[in-house]
Design a protein around this nucleic acid. Sequence first.
DNA 1: GGCATGTATCTCGCTCAGCGAGAGAATACG
DNA 2: CGTATTCTCTCGCTGAGCGAGATACATGCC
Lengths: 151, 151
Amino acid sequence: MEPERTPLQLVHLLRGLTVELDLFGAEFAARNGLHPTDLRALIHVLDARRAGTVVTPGRLGEALGLNSAGTTGLVDRLERLGLIRRERDPGDRRRVRLVVEERAIELGQGFFGGLIADLVAAMGAFGDAELAVARRFLEAMTEVVAAARAE
Amino acid sequence: MEPERTPLQLVHLLRGLTVELDLFGAEFAARNGLHPTDLRALIHVLDARRAGTVVTPGRLGEALGLNSAGTTGLVDRLERLGLIRRERDPGDRRRVRLVVEERAIELGQGFFGGLIADLVAAMGAFGDAELAVARRFLEAMTEVVAAARAE
DNA sequence: GGCATGTATCTCGCTCAGCGAGAGAATACG
DNA sequence: CGTATTCTCTCGCTGAGCGAGATACATGCC
């Protein structure tokens, strides 16, 4: 009788999940002496490393919604923490490459390692077909948010 | 052949979705002259209002991970923006009740309205059984994160 | 070549969110 | 009662991030 009910519950669930994940990230960050932004940046450079793409301060700042001044400060911070290293791009010497240090990978695993293992374990309670549905669902929701973001 | 592949993709999807939602929220906040924390606080007090529970500065600060000084500043800010109002609790006069103003509800609808409608519309592509799976999935993931957060 | 335009990053000065420490006011409890 | 506890707020401070602009390199056009 209330066709809106289940969808709305799902929206709330989505929001609740992102809140939990945010708080988890913020707590992990604080415990390791970095800020939420630093953690987001760490995730970004680790993702890029895995994808084999080059990260520059410009790209990083754009991904995190920072202006150039804030980005320089962020990169300074990450470099001071020994998580990344700056390297001039030999091809275009205006550019700086952000190279991931070993310590960043360890930190990333400390952050994800435990949580990912738990999440994957919890997925064991779902069949392949169900996981496929979850995946389609998440993809659809992500697309909607990304589209809304682009106005 | 790679039993880990689909679950890991799902983990990445989850993370990607939270990143998108965060950025969406941050952009909405900036466009309305408030900070990400303000928006999270707004969501919290609106949720509480719907649930019929009383929000105090203490509860709000705890929910957002702020200390008391930061919370006072946050509440000052929200009050200055005309989103909430402070009211002494007549029962326990140490306490302050945070009352939601009309403007906060409008702002909340401006934020959610569009996005929620789009999300619900996208859910229309899924059958009831599929939505039920998505819901079980989100609940399971939320539980895992919440448990990890409690250490 | 030489000069204008565009792009990537950094510097400077500033604002203000959030922290630590602690004060003040009200309540609970022996 | 007085003492401990709870809730909120004040004060002073640190530092993340912004706006404006400087600098260095790259590229296109004549």
